[in-house]
Amino acid sequence: MVEDTFMALKYYTLDVFTDRRFGGNPLAVVLGGDALSGETMQAIAREFNLSETVFVLGSTRPAHSAKMRIFTPRSEIPFAGHPTIGTATLLAELNAPVHNGEKDALIMLEQGIGTVRVGARFRAGAPPFAEFDAPKLPAEAGVLPPDDVIAAGLGLIPSEVGFENHHPICYAAGHTFAFVPVTTLEAIGRARVNGSHWEKAFDEQGITGVYVYTRQCVHTGSSFHVRMFAPQVGIAEDPATGSAAVGLAGLVHQFDGLPDGTHKRVVEQGYEMGRPSQIVLTLVVAAGKLTMVRIGGSSVRVSEGMIEV
């Protein structure tokens, strides 16, 4: 943009992966940002100071809904789950036609990782729900230090890391996360970024964040209770992390030995932050291989306004 040109842009905030306001993962979406420079987008993201801020731009292809750029408070990223869900839901709500009080929309979003197809549905008496097929399947990536080093990085003791045949592992599906299984709900509640021990355990691994998970859950309908720390990209803790849930699908397939078919898992996150979230994770296994991962969740609009640039 011409930096001395005054603009006022419409923005919305949404809470994503929740069916009620003030839960889930908050997201800012700024519309009409085509004239903004990347530096200005980054400054706006720092101003919102949410885990991610999206800038919606005009699409480069006629069949696509929009192009979007995603920024954390520190950097631009090529893909993230809750920005994808929230942006698609917002665009469908603003633009899709209503039929008999309901609407369904297919939103095609151009992201740094590629084009992401998102299905959104709106039903009376229920919050909007959207889901997308992961643009990349999870793959193992990187090597982690021994369990005692990992445990120290999280402020835990070594016996609290790992359960059944699950052990710490790195998976990537656009971002690389360290996945750390933890024995109990009580232990995962004590996990934290533990100073210099964290740096030794994780800062040299080239990962986006650390995703700790346990089978012990707050709700009986959930399969995993998780937390995600990403101080490297300016996120002390994330209330809901769709991109990491894609990687979780890889280790569930690997460690749990899923048979061929479609499998659903509900992942709960954000409870320690007072922002409970639910991510619907769908895995499809065929001929013994993970062939599709889908991420779904609800979102609600919280606020709207104008930002002066």
Rank of each mutant, 00 (worst) to 15 (best):
G101V: 01
M68Y: 07
R69K: 15
G153K: 04
A134V: 15
A134F: 10
S75V: 13
K136M: 15
P78D: 14
A152S: 09
A141W: 10
R121T: 13
I113D: 09
P97T: 01
G86T: 07
D147E: 14
F129D: 08
G58P: 09
A126W: 10
E76P: 12
P73A: 14
A63V: 05
D148W: 00
S59A: 15
P97D: 12
F163T: 04
P158Q: 04
F122D: 01
F163G: 04
V143F: 02
L154K: 02
I157Y: 00
E102P: 00
R61G: 10
P97F: 07
F163E: 05
T87N: 08
Q111G: 02
H82W: 08
F79R: 05
A141F: 05
A105I: 04
G114I: 12
P127K: 13
D133N: 12
E140L: 15
D147I: 07
A105S: 15
D133P: 02
R69P: 08
G162V: 03
G119W: 13
G119V: 04
F55E: 07
D148C: 01
G142D: 11
I70Y: 14
E93I: 11
I150Y: 04
E131K: 15
L106V: 11
M68C: 11
G142E: 08
I157N: 00
V54G: 05
P127F: 03
P145Q: 03
P146L: 02
P145G: 08
V54K: 06
E52P: 14
G101Y: 08
D104K: 06
G142C: 06
I77S: 08
L109R: 09
N165C: 03
T72N: 05
A152Q: 05
A130C: 13
F55I: 04
P62K: 14
R74G: 03
A96H: 01
F71C: 14
F122H: 13
R121G: 12
